[in-house]
Design a protein around this nucleic acid. Structure first.
Lengths: 247, 247
DNA sequence: ATAATGTCAGTTGTCTGACATGTCAACAGG
DNA sequence: CCTGTTGACATGTCAGACAACTGACATTAT
């Protein structure tokens, strides 16, 4: 075949986007059009629409009532920093209208330490070359987060971080497209700031920090990025929507 | 009609249960049977099965690859708890084979303080009578969490907490069935233990605590339970599955 | 009058069978 | 050895139908 194949976005991705925009425009509590009608408007089958809607219900964005209708939930987690969707700090700040800057940037390639090897899911005795990206994110000169990414060299190397690096390793991986990313498993811990962090983040030694340890998985279940982030309290508020188990 | 109508569990609920059990029994990375076959085994249509599977994919429990198959994602360590599903500490501990006990139980009815009124979503100047339930959860005599629930008296009163109260207000609300609960919006903060908590939880003053502030919503979007929980580090590990935004 | 019951339109929930598309391995031909 | 083709098999999507539920209103029985 000589004709140029243009990659079409799969229907369910497109519907997710469109529906998300639609919901944001609607007042909380508004009833959505009936499924058959909405499916027609979006140009997909009802089955596809329903599958997408289910993920929105799961996230608490929509509420469905059998025999009655589908409604926009009265909260708007989309505008806030919900943890269900993995988003770079950079994009998150952008969405919130905040300007972030990178400071104390440190990029190096070396062998992974034992704990890093473990975090990346390799066997204990594996020798893994990794890219380390350390930096402090500041807002108006004030440090708000300390980020550290560990990525095996196969996925990313020093040269991939251009001069325009704005703090997000995730965004680089996403823009590149390979490997395909699926989910991140993020562990949540409260930790005291040790002297080193206290200095980097310009806070008192012994302050409480929120620590997020994330393993970013590709579709074939490999760990692409192992990252450890510390957040200074008060600048970002994290939340998560939890659905009530119907069992 | 004199015959007793027995409430049949809706298919998608039943499938969710069965599928959940099935997945737990399988090794991570195992491929599931093809959808048509699995649907037949579970006694539902493929469409219904797919809708349920999508929620599992959303939660990162399953990974689907177009044209290849569906796989069980990397196993979540047993000691940890995903935050996507709201579950009482009680049930959680039960699931992990840990015996919890309630101590320092304090139950009272009074008017809500301004911050509580706010948390419950009432107008600023509202006078709301609430039930307050304070307690410390211990495992083998060691305090692991400090919980405080604030529930408007319309939903729950002192008498509803029987002598067999085992620490979970959520379980009581669930067992009762009304109001129907939908989701909880939980804020995540790191905080230092003040002297009062340090004593209650038998930890050093100035330790870092993980604080979860949760608003539990009913289907009609009212706040049913406003709760504040403090967790001692090391006993429970919380995590959340974050899906990569395809946008 | 009042309470219980029946009816009906509208919506979500489920089912069936089919086709479209992506993936991978086996295989044939260079 | 390499390469392109083919086919089996998986998920993704579709169309149309029917079932179950809700809420409002009319009807009937008490």
């Amino acid at each position: 075949m000589d004709t140029i194949e243009l990659k079409i976005r799969p229907p369910h991705i497109q519907v997710e986007e469109t529906l998300s925009e639609l919901i944001e425009q609607l007042e909380p509590g508004t009833q959505l059009p009936p499924e058959p009608k909405l499916a027609q408007q979006l140009g997909v089958s009802r089955a596809t629409l329903r599958e997408v809607m289910r993920t929105f219900v799961e996230r608490g964005v929509l509420a469905r009532r059998h025999g009655v209708g589908t409604f926009v939930a009265s909260r708007i987690p989309v505008l806030e920093t919900g943890l269900e969707v993995l988003e770079s700090l950079d994009r998150m700040a952008d969405r919130l209208g905040v300007v972030t800057e990178v400071s104390a940037l440190e990029v190096l390639e070396r062998l992974a330490t034992p704990s890093e090897v473990l975090g990346l899911g390799y066997p204990e005795d594996a020798q893994v070359e990794v890219l380390i990206v350390n930096r402090v994110i500041t807002v108006e000169g004030e440090p708000v987060a300390d980020l550290r990414d560990i990525v095996p060299l196969g996925y990313l190397c020093k040269e991939d971080l251009g001069a325009d690096f704005h703090g997000s390793v995730l965004d680089i991986l996403l823009r590149r497209g390979t490997p395909m990313l699926s989910t991140s498993r993020t562990q949540i811990v409260a930790e005291l700031a040790n002297p080193k962090f206290a200095e980097r983040l310009q806070i008192q030694k012994g302050s409480a920090l929120l620590k997020l340890v994330a393993k970013l998985y590709s579709y074939d279940e490999k760990v692409v990025d192992y990252s450890v982030s510390y957040f200074v309290p008060g600048h970002f508020k994290f939340h998560v929507m939890r659905r009530v188990s119907q069992v």
